[in-house]
Simulated assay, not measured.
Amino acid sequence: MIQRVLSWFQYLAVLVRKEFLVIFSDPANRIVLFAPVLIQSLLFGYAATYDVNRVDYAILDLSHSQTATEFVAKLDGSGIFQRTATLENSQQITSVINNREALAVITIPQDFEQKLTQQQASPIQVIVDGRNSSTAGAAGSYIASIVQQFNQQRLKNTAPLNIETRIWYNPNHESRWGIMPSLIAALSMMQTLLLSSLSVAREREQGTFDQLLVTPYTPVHIMIGKALPPIFVGLIQSTIIFLIILFWFQIPMQGSIGLLYLGLISFNVAVVGVGLSISAIALNMQQAMFFTFLLIMPLMLLSGLLTPVQNMPQVLEIATYINPLRFGIDLVLRVYLEGAEFSQVKYDFVPMIILTCITLPLATWLFRNRLS
């Protein structure tokens, strides 16, 4: 029994070594195939927009005055702001922002109306989630615009309101802070997906696929042997990007490195499952590259990298649930910028695990049919 297990792993090691030799000795001069312009243009038109047509916000009204009620009604009636929570105390703000229940939390102080009636400036506090800097900036601008309108219409004879804004997780409001950590998942996905999708297709095109029929390799051997090298390469790329972000751009890491890499491993395994399924279907490298580039752009557009998922049409928002990149980016951002723990990001693992449980058995089944 032990000898059989050792023999199984020896076969696997040989196949993995062979895959690494192919990957690292290949000059990687791949021909870029025709991309489906129609699908990409539709996705750009619907998904790739920086216009913010909905801002989820929470209100903490400590005043409970008539003027505060009118101000909140002004927000609710704007057509842009959607109230998702009415808070009772300031301790609830952290959970609302961390759980992405609200992009902004507006706090109206207890002496709000009293100061206004005494001709004193009465500040309201706006806390904005800065993990998506472009959306946070737009939300802040919309709130400022509504405050200005409220001052002109309601407070003609009293002191104006002021806004005190604090941006969490991105204190300097730099777009780089939201974009760069996302690339830890996004860039590794492209390389991992391409390498895994070309693996079996390369065997067929080079005429070596039929040789697997006379080897002791099982479909499980082939699947694992061809999955490990792309996962390894993806993790190397993620590490390089991570080090550049941390040391060159000096964006501080708030969370656990172990949790970050656990998420990256789960993400890369899910992506490899998709790539191996493509590779098992494609008859040659040309088809594999075509299917890969057909898939990469929708995955990017529907990931939340370019625009928040909440701003997409409902049909596209539902489609993002089968996109591992959406949850990979969300996990990386929350761990890197927010310092989230496993209990806070555990639901990002679920879609990636489900996708893995579907695609890897599918790839194995396709290999078995090809080898039979």
Rank of each mutant, 00 (worst) to 15 (best):
V233Q: 08
T192N: 12
L195V: 06
H221I: 02
L183E: 14
Q191V: 11
I244M: 12
I236K: 02
T218Y: 11
I241W: 00
S182Y: 06
Y217A: 11
L195R: 08
V220M: 15
I184T: 12
A201M: 03
M189C: 13
D210E: 14
V233T: 07
P229V: 05
S182E: 08
V214G: 05
W248C: 14
V220G: 06
P229W: 14
G207R: 03
L195H: 07
V200M: 14
L213R: 15
M190T: 08
L198E: 11
Q237H: 03
R204H: 05
L195G: 09
T215W: 10
P230F: 08
E203A: 09
P219W: 14
A186H: 05
S197K: 02
F247W: 09
L228T: 05
A186Y: 08
W248A: 15
G225E: 10
E205N: 07
S196P: 02
L228Q: 00
L212I: 01
I184E: 05
F209T: 06
I184H: 08
E203C: 09
V233L: 12
L193D: 06
E205C: 07
G225C: 08
M223A: 15
S188A: 10
P219D: 13
Y217G: 00
M190P: 04
M223S: 13
Q237A: 03
Q211H: 10
G225R: 12
T215M: 12
L195D: 09
I231G: 15
I224W: 07
A185N: 04
R204E: 04
I244Q: 06
T208E: 04
P216H: 05
